[in-house]
Design a protein around this nucleic acid. Structure first.
Length: 207
DNA sequence: TTTACGATCTAT
DNA sequence: TAGATCGTAAAT
C-alpha cells in the first residue's frame, strides 16, 4: 500500500512550512496526516486548522517566550509541537516560519481514511463521525503524545508526517476566530485564523 | 512550594 | 453546564 519511494514524493518538504503561518494553516487543508507505528498506518485528511503567530500573538503559547514547553516552536519549521492540556489531553501542531520565529498550526480535525479499525479500537464507544473532529480526539486516534514532540514531519523516519492529499478550492474554505481563547485580549481573540473545509462533494464533513 | 489556569472532551 | 485532571508558568 505505501512504498517508500512514492511516499517520499508525497511528503510535504520543509519549504512548505517555512512560510507565513496563516498561509500554512490554510494550505494544510486537504493534506493527509499519516501515522505509522508497529507497521500499521493510520491516516486522515486535514479539514480544520488554526494559526498561532509568534510571541506577539497573545493567544499563542509562545507569548511567554522560550521555555521548555515552547522551545520547539522556536526551532525549524516542519517539526511537531505536541502539548499537554486540561490535565488529560494532547494537541498536535506543526511548526511554521523561520527559525527563532515561534509560530505553529494547530491541527483541529481530520477525516479518517486508512486504519479505520485501529482508530475504532482507540476510540471505543464513540460514533465514527466523532472519532477525530477535535484536536485532542485526533491525537488519541493517531497515538500522538509527548513522544512525538519535536519530531521531523518531513521524513517518514519519524512515523508521523504530512503528505499531498486532495485539492481544496478556495471557495470551499471558510475561516473564523480561533476556539477556546475567550480570555485572550483583542485583537488576537478575533483574528480569523481558524480555517476549515466546507461541506462539499469531495469531502464528507462531520454532522 | 503553592497557586491558577488552560489552543478540551464527555456525560448530564 | 459542570467535572475531570495535571503540566506549566508565575507568584509566594
Amino acid at each position: 500500500m505505501y512504498n517508500t519511494k512514492r511516499m517520499a514524493e508525497l511528503i510535504l518538504p520543509q519549504n512548505f512550512y517555512n512560510r507565513n503561518v496563516v498561509l500554512v494553516a490554510k494550505d494544510l487543508l486537504g493534506m493527509r496526516l499519516v501515522r505509522n507505528f508497529d507497521n500499521l498506518y493510520v491516516s486522515g485528511i486535514i479539514c480544520e486548522t488554526e494559526a498561532y503567530d509568534g510571541t506577539l500573538d497573545l493567544a499563542c503559547h509562545a507569548r511567554v517566550g522560550k521555555t521548555n514547553r515552547t522551545a520547539v516552536m522556536f526551532g525549524p519549521a516542519g517539526r511537531a509541537y505536541v502539548y499537554f492540556t486540561y490535565g488529560m489531553h494532547w494537541c498536535f501542531n506543526v511548526v511554521a516560519g523561520e527559525e527563532n520565529y515561534a509560530a505553529a498550526v494547530l491541527i483541529r480535525a481530520i477525516l479518517p481514511e486508512k486504519g479505520l479499525d485501529i482508530i475504532a479500537n482507540r476510540r471505543p464507544g464513540v460514533r465514527q463521525n466523532q472519532w477525530t473532529n477535535g484536536p485532542a480526539k485526533l491525537t488519541k486516534a493517531l497515538m500522538i503524545d509527548k513522544l512525538q514532540n519535536g519530531v521531523d514531519l518531513t521524513t517518514s523516519q519519524s512515523g508521523l508526517w504530512i503528505e499531498n492529499g486532495i485539492k481544496v478550492c478556495t471557495s470551499d474554505i471558510s475561516c473564523g476566530p480561533r476556539v477556546g481563547i475567550e480570555r485572550t485580549p483583542e485583537p488576537w481573540r478575533s483574528k480569523p485564523w481558524r480555517f476549515w473545509i466546507l461541506e462539499n462533494k469531495n469531502v464528507n464533513s462531520y454532522e
